[in-house]
């Protein structure tokens, strides 16, 4: 995990998930509805990937995030959602 301001970046060879810890309000929507159960809650209820390799980059967490706090990108740089 890398940090960039309030953002935490998680990355493997194919996917990069960024969580803005300041904007996130720990509503739990991304955790509940991730089809691959990629995300888990930290002690504050905010998401981090526990199973990054299972991510299919469907982007539903990003699209349903009410706080613009989570993004999913392909590692080539282009967004894939």
């Amino acid at each position: 995990m890398e940090k960039e301001g309030s953002k935490e970046i998680y990355q493997n060879n194919s996917v990069k998930i960024t969580v803005d810890k300041e904007w996130c309000k720990a509503c739990g929507i991304c955790l509940e509805f991730c089809p691959q159960k990629v995300l888990a809650a930290d002690e504050g209820g905010k998401p981090y990937p526990v199973n990054l390799s299972a991510c299919t980059r469907c982007g539903l967490c990003e699209l349903r995030c009410p706080d613009f706090a989570i993004t999913v990108e392909g590692v080539e740089g282009k967004k894939d959602v």
């Binding site: 904007w23 309000k25 349903r64 009410p66 706080d67 613009f68 967004k79």
Partner: peptide, 28 residues
Amino acid sequence: KRDIEYYLRREAFPHIWCAGCGNGIVLG
């Protein structure tokens, strides 16, 4: 395709809505 942040007034965030409020989803 642009980052959503291109369309936001960043200085106004985080927004005032409660955790999980649909308003943010609609805005997105």
